[in-house]
């Protein structure tokens, strides 16, 4: 498809089969040419802009790890001053840039109610620096700073509920998707942009070295995350949960089917798996899957 190659080109340095790039391509299919992107430091930035090359066909800026939201606010202010109401501003960041170090600046941007689409590619760890744990790392995952060991089951924290944080800011549009469902991603991006106002889309992006999966498994694992109820396809319009694509793809599979595919969970004992199953049940109840 023509636009696919225009906005993000092949030939970048991401791992072959990278879940984040699958998601990025799906996001790009939802955008049009009148878009400016502010990107945080992380895998996506590093792998796509090795100077003097760039994979981006849209105006694109990277400043720092934690300030992409504020940079986007500045871009929007410049567009507003020019009277440009056509150009959309989109932020792209990883979960580290979103849940952790950039958290305060995202809240500032949302407070200002600016018409910016924020996309978080959630690899559930700092992929770029070698899979250290972030506020998004799920319970039981082994990362390089929450390693499993004789006395450790890996991360003992629960994943922070960023969607709830976004909803608390009264965003017009809040959604969750995974690299297992690229068309769902594209549709959500289009919908977010059609509804003017601040919006947040979080996309589970399986990371091969981080999750210890094979390079043909990112999409499959992304699908399992949805089908087990651990990472449902969610969408909130003006704070109201809408059912859109949830029912079709949820199959109430046991979480074990998802966990067992991934090296980061392979050390887990039955009690830990049971606890994670409880988390999935909690999601199922809460979102009436």
């Amino acid at each position: 498809m023509e636009y696919q190659n225009k906005f993000i080109s092949p030939g970048h340095n991401a791992c072959a089969g990278c879940g984040q790039l699958v998601a990025t391509q799906a996001v790009m299919r939802g955008l049009n040419k009148d878009t400016i992107i502010a990107n945080a430091t992380g895998c996506l930035e590093v792998t796509t802009t090795s100077y003097p090359q760039s994979a981006w066909g849209l105006p694109w800026i990277h400043s720092l790890f934690e300030n992409a939201a504020a940079v986007a606010s500045g871009i929007l202010a410049a567009l507003n001053k020019k009277g440009d109401v056509k150009t959309k501003v989109v932020v792209q960041a990883g979960d580290g840039g979103t849940y952790d170090i950039g958290f305060g600046l995202i809240s500032g941007m949302w407070e200002r109610g600016e018409n910016i689409l924020y996309i978080c590619y959630d690899t559930e760890a700092y992929s770029n620096t070698g899979i250290q744990a972030s506020g998004s790392t799920p319970y039981g995952a082994s990362t390089t700073t929450s390693p499993e060991g004789l006395k450790s089951i890996g991360s003992t924290q629960r994943k922070k509920d960023m969607l709830a944080v976004a909803l608390a800011h009264k965003l017009n549009y809040v959604a969750q998707s995974t690299a297992g469902f690229p068309d769902d991603i594209t549709n959500k991006v289009k919908k977010a942009l059609a509804l003017n106002g601040p919006s947040y889309i979080q996309i589970l992006s399986p990371c091969m070295p981080g999750w210890k999966i094979n390079n043909n498994e990112a999409v499959m694992v992304g699908k399992l995350a949805v089908r087990t109820g651990l990472y449902p396809l969610l969408e909130y319009v003006n704070g109201q949960l809408s059912n859109s694509s949830i029912k079709n793809n949820f199959q109430a599979l046991a979480v074990e089917e998802y966990l067992s595919q991934q090296g980061r969970f392979k050390h887990l004992k039955p009690e830990a798996v049971k606890y994670i199953q409880d988390l999935a049940e909690e999601n199922i109840k809460r979102h009436k899957l």
């Binding site: 504020a70 410049a78 200002r112």
Partner: peptide, 27 residues
């Protein structure tokens, strides 16, 4: 006749003028 963006920290304020400047505005 300008955009006055109230920032939530100096770190944000500097980043906001950075973004606006990169988008071609006098800041």
């Amino acid at each position: 006749n300008c955009e006055y963006v109230r920032a939530e920290s100096e770190f944000a304020a500097a980043s906001i003028v950075l973004g606006a400047s990169a988008a071609g505005a006098r800041v």
